[in-house]
């Protein structure tokens, strides 16, 4: 059973309104992506900055209106729901952001921050307070933190508040957008463990967006690799790490630096940067940086199944 199914979703942004009525140029941030998240599982979405992974996360939660495609939450097509109909559903789907300092209102204490989302769902004041307190304990913040403002807390504490605020509504599906990238190394493991514990406790499903493959390997059951608005490869965790098929996945994996100086591996160093999304290359989008490029790559490769469950968009396979 899938908690989330996304079908051929697109999100285009338009760069200005064209001069003299000329049509504006479209930035195809997400360009036809399909993915599913199974109930109780974690899907990872990996890619470099600017590849559209955050836009995809936000479009799934309907923080952006999709340009095309469908979003199904628990089998229910929510793509065209007006805000009023989305509101009760927002309880079921929450988001955890990268920068806790930016995500928290600087004028709300930890307790108030966690209590606020409950206001939309009709509990009384006492009940809200009780639930918020309880959730703060669950995420490992003691009573002395309740009255603290974001600037008085450490990075790890702030991210715990953000997690508590998302979890207090007992959601079914949570999008985590780089939840540990802004945290210090020793705190990262604490927050990852917390997310895993919360997942088990509430039977949650996650879409975990990250550029850090080692974190994705630890956290995710299924991995999607995104490049310039498209999924280029997807597979189960073990499969994709053991047998990456797309040259981009291969390069990403080889760029992971392991904390072990003895383990010198052959590193694939990609040339150049992510192409300008306003002018994506025709054909395969990875063509310009691909070490194995052949003439056929001027034609766009489809996402094809290589083995059951393992799909990649590359002519090499």
């Amino acid at each position: 059973m899938d908690i989330l199914a996304v079908r051929e979703i697109k999100k285009y942004f338009f760069a200005g309104t064209g001069l003299w009525g000329r049509p504006a140029r479209a930035i195809k941030a997400v360009d036809g992506v399909s993915l599913t998240v199974r109930r109780g599982q974690t899907a990872g979405l990996v890619g470099e900055s600017g590849c559209g992974k955050s836009t995809l996360g936000r479009t799934i939660l309907r923080l952006f209106a999709p340009t095309a495609g469908r979003v199904l939450l628990g089998g229910e097509d929510i793509t065209d729901y007006p805000p009023a109909r989305l509101r009760p559903l927002r309880r079921k789907m929450q988001m955890i952001f990268q920068d806790p300092l930016a995500a928290l209102n600087p004028r709300l204490t930890a307790l108030a921050a966690v209590e606020t989302p409950l206001r939309s769902y009709g509990q009384g004041k006492e009940e809200r307070r009780r639930l918020a307190r309880e959730m703060l304990r669950v995420v490992g913040l003691n009573a002395s933190c309740e009255g603290k403002y974001p600037h008085e807390m450490s990075g790890g504490q702030r991210q715990r508040v953000v997690v508590a605020r998302a979890m207090v509504l007992e959601p079914q599906f949570v999008v985590c957008d780089e939840p540990v990238s802004a945290l210090d190394v020793s705190v990262r493991a604490q927050v990852l463990n917390l997310l895993r514990d919360m997942g088990e406790r509430l039977g949650l499903s996650y879409l975990f967006i990250s550029h850090d493959l080692s974190v994705v390997y630890y956290f995710c059951d299924w991995v999607y690799v995104m490049y310039l608005g498209k999924i280029v490869e997807e597979a189960a965790r073990e499969e994709i790490f053991a047998h990456p098929a797309h040259p981009y996945t291969e390069a990403l994996l080889s760029a992971v630096l392991l904390p072990d100086p003895g383990q010198k591996r052959v590193r694939i160093i990609l040339q150049g940067d992510l192409p300008d999304p306003l002018n994506p290359p025709a054909g395969c989008r990875f063509y310009s940086r691909c070490p194995y490029a052949v003439p056929r790559c001027e034609e766009e490769p489809p996402l094809r199944e290589l083995r059951p469950g393992h799909r990649a968009a590359c002519w090499l396979h």
């Binding site: 190394v185 390997y217 994996l253 992971v256 392991l258 904390p259």
Partner: peptide
Amino acid sequence: LRSIPQPGRT
């Protein structure tokens, strides 16, 4: 060193 997730160790 122990708190760093490493591919191959889940």
